[in-house]
Each structure stands twice: as structure tokens, then as C-alpha cells.
Design a protein around this nucleic acid. Sequence first.
DNA 1: ATGTGACTCGTAGTCCGTA
DNA 2: TTACGGACTACGAGTCACA
Lengths: 71, 71
Amino acid sequence: MKLNTDILILFGNKVKTLRKEKGISQEELAFRSDLHRTYIGMIERAEKNITLKNIEKIANALEISILDLFK
Amino acid sequence: MKLNTDILILFGNKVKTLRKEKGISQEELAFRSDLHRTYIGMIERAEKNITLKNIEKIANALEISILDLFK
DNA sequence: ATGTGACTCGTAGTCCGTA
DNA sequence: TTACGGACTACGAGTCACA
């Protein structure tokens, strides 16, 4: 798949970092955000071009604002 | 289409507001962001669940950071 | 200058696995 | 626990004619 645009890499790394800070697994984040386990992995690896609604879901699952995902 | 989720409405309104502040038309924004005229309209009306790459395009076209789109 | 319905096509997103 | 693959379905991307 390999999209790997800058913005996707940036976003994926941010999710990964924030997820680890919370000390939860991809599976747990997937569960909390109501997204699929493998999909979370793909986002962190910048292999998918995530949509706005799912960005919101992940922000909620991480208990942060969308703003924090782009800092 | 009519998606109209909160986050999409919020985002659409933000784009519209910022676009008008810059004093440009949907057509002009479409041109600058390399997206279609009607597509920009759909985003402002919250009828499409936009992806991250296109969010970036619009931010660039408005000469702002993605962060500003979520404030 | 913008809204809308209809359309094609590519990809977002799911689900099954294996290592 | 995560990466990655194949196969699949749903929906976003992108365009058009017309109001």
C-alpha cells in the first residue's frame, strides 16, 4: 500500500507516540475508537489516508482534542 | 449524500469562514488547492468525509496550518 | 458564484489469517 | 503485541450538466 506522504507520516507518528504515552496497545486503541485493529496499525505506519471522522474517533479514544494531534 | 456529522459541520464552517476572510471564492480556493470546485462546496456543506491529505491541501491553499483549521 | 444528483473509479476500512 | 498479506465491501475522490 505504502502511501507515506509527509502529513500521513507525521500523523501516524503522533498517534503512536500519544498511544504509548497512554500505555495502551493498538488493539486497545482500536477497541476504544471503534476502529479495526489492523487499521490502527496501518494509520501509524502511514499506509492509509485517514478520514476526518476517524481522526475524531482516535482523538476521543486518546482523550485529547483533535488540535493535539497536529501539534 | 448528507453526512452532516458534528465534526464535518465544524470543519466545513471553518473552511468557509477562513475562505471568506481571505476574500476568495470556492472556485478560487478549488484552483489553489488543486481540488474540484464542486468538491470544495461539498466540504463546506459537510457532505463529504474529507481525508487528511485533502485537509492539508486546503490548509495550504488558505495559507494556514492544519492546526488553524481545528481551532 | 454556488448547490445538487448522478455517475465512475480508486481507496478507505474490515476481516481472515501467519509469523 | 505488532506487522503484514489477501480478499473483500463501503464509501471517498473527482467530475459533469444543469439549476
